[in-house]
Design a protein around this nucleic acid. Structure first.
Length: 423
DNA sequence: TCTGGGGTCCTAGGACCC
DNA sequence: TCTGGGGTCCTAGGACCC
């Protein structure tokens, strides 16, 4: 039996989440900003209609915001993650095999489902259920490969006559849609590849599908070869239900205001390490390799630039925040140069081991904190209870450099004090 | 003044070995 | 000291995704 995939994708997800709790904004254009309130990362359909572009820095659209009364929100990740969980749980109730692909999309395995229900009817059922239970609008694309399912979803969003569901299992419909699709709209073809393909006379998705996989392999890579095969209905990517364990954890941020002192920089790096260590423990892994990087802003062309990174190994893998902070501070002291206006810092953890599996070398010091596991568990528990925070002294208390979030919505679903009052 | 953050995979090239 | 092929491992960088 040949495979059938569905891609379910939430429309304007972050903007939709913000609108859910503000019925007064039903027809108002809404945009959601990136961390630090830098640029636009989500737009409601009204904002799209006004021509607000994805990724545009907010300072470039201030006049439009005033003129059209666009409502602006800082990103509120705990809200979006919570809404995402609800959507995904609903999908898992409706389909036996689900791959959560990103915060707002999931692939479903619909293989064999046609004997019970038509694919279009199933898609409409998914759409209606999520709309009624959660209030989020989704579109559904159905096809024999993931790449075609992505394309079908794209069409479902673009053409309102589809009522949000497209069945692209038919070969002739596939080719018709491919002919209408610019090559850069294909999943896996970004700006660079698109430019090279155009130069070779490959302009539409159909042009790409009709190029021999072998020659694409020669000119590009196995990745694009797979895309060509998938466009022709040959499934090369399976559904991945179990998320792979992470190979690295990155925590980095641009600063709300530029950092010029080592003391502030230490605080910031300390905070990144703390978050990274939390993620590491959640993955139930220990890291052996740690990198720290700091940099000035490449947008400020007239001021002096400095960007550097350093890595080092811990004597043994650890998930103890204190070990990681200690090493990170040593690295930072080597990296640091006075006299620059730093815009961003970050840390990367890698070279992971399952807890307890690392074979210590003969001459490794038998270090490690005796109470590490218990202490870290207590810290994690308190920090997730909403009762306040335990933090490491070096994170600092007055964070002049902290992220800007001027337009944050309340925590409607995750904190008691954010609950909507019904009178 | 103001331009995100967090990931993955692949490839080319250097170091090193036999 | 020269000459050569072939293999592995590692890293940096490029490209993509949301």
């Amino acid at each position: 039996m040949s495979a059938i995939f569905a891609l379910v994708d939430c429309n304007n997800f972050y903007a939709s989440c913000e609108k859910l709790f503000r019925p007064d904004l039903a027809n108002t254009p809404v945009v959601v900003l990136s961390n630090n309130d830098g640029c636009v990362v989500a737009r409601s359909k009204e904002a799209k209609a006004l021509g607000i572009k994805m990724g545009i820095p907010i300072f470039k659209i201030q006049s439009q915001i005033r003129q059209h009364g666009i409502k602006v929100f800082s990103s509120n990740y705990s809200l979006y993650a919570d809404m995402s969980d609800r959507v995904m749980r609903t999908l898992e109730d409706m389909a036996p095999r689900v791959e959560i692909y990103s915060i707002d999309e999931a692939f479903l395995d619909l293989t064999g489902i046609q004997s019970a229900i038509s694919l279009i009817d199933f898609g409409q059922q998914v759409k209606h259920t999520i709309d009624r239970w959660i209030g989020i609008t989704v579109c559904v694309g159905i096809a024999p490969t993931k790449t075609l399912a992505k394309l079908a979803n794209h069409a479902a969003k673009k053409y309102s006559a589809t009522r949000g569901v497209v069945d692209l299992t038919d070969r002739n419909r596939q080719r018709k849609l491919l002919a209408l699709t610019p090559v850069e709209d294909i999943w896996g073809v970004g700006r660079r590849l698109s430019a090279r393909l155009q130069a070779m006379g490959i302009h539409t998705a159909l042009d790409l599908a009709d190029t021999s996989a072998k020659s694409i392999r020669q000119h590009f890579s196995v990745v694009l070869e797979r895309t060509v095969r998938e466009l022709n209905g040959e499934s090369c990517m399976d559904l991945e239900q179990i998320p792979a364990t992470k190979k690295q954890i990155i925590c980095s941020r641009s600063f709300g205001t530029r950092v010029t002192s080592l003391v502030q920089m230490r605080q910031a790096v300390c905070e990144h390490i703390t978050r990274a260590a939390e993620k590491l423990r959640k993955e139930r892994q220990q890291a052996k390799l740690l990198s720290v990087f700091i940099r000035t802003s490449s947008y400020q062309k007239d001021s002096p630039q400095y960007s550097n990174a350093l890595s080092a190994e811990l004597t043994r893998p650890s998930d103890d925040t204190r070990d990681l902070i200690q090493l990170a501070m040593r690295l930072l002291d080597h990296l640091w140069r006075d006299g620059y206006q730093y815009a961003k810092a970050g840390v990367v953890l890698s070279d992971f081991y399952d807890i307890g599996t690392y074979q210590a070398g003969l001459f490794d010091e038998p270090t490690g904190h005796a109470n590490s596991r218990q202490l870290m568990q207590v810290v994690d528990t308190i920090n997730h209870s909403g009762r306040g925070k335990v933090f490491f002294a070096r994170q600092g208390i007055k964070k002049s450099w902290a992220m800007k979030r001027e337009y944050l919505s309340p925590a409607y679903t995750t904190h008691w004090n954010g609950l909507i009052k019904v009178n």
